[in-house]
Amino acid sequence: MKYLKNVVTLQYDSTKCTGCGRCLEVCPHRVFQPEGKKVKIADRDACMECGACARNCAFDAIEVTEGVGCAAAVIIGFFTGTEPTCG
């Protein structure tokens, strides 16, 4: 199952990447794949912006605006004026 195309905020900076492979380990949707001694974004649209890769990258090579893909959370956030958050 794939969600919308070309929407995610995932950014990867290969110059900071050391090829430790932590992102491959934590991504729940196989967004990254090894490429040479580093990684590449192989399936960008599969990203759900959970933020696990960025949080576990000790070298700040990955950036993503982390959030929950939850309509109810967006609605609650809209009415309370806060960040979208689950219940």
């Binding site: 919308l4 959030g67 893909g69």
Partner: peptide
């Protein structure tokens, strides 16, 4: 979307 395992906030937005 909130129960699903593959939707991103950007997409939901």
């Amino acid at each position: 979307t909130g129960s699903s395992t593959y939707t991103s906030l950007s997409g939901v937005d």
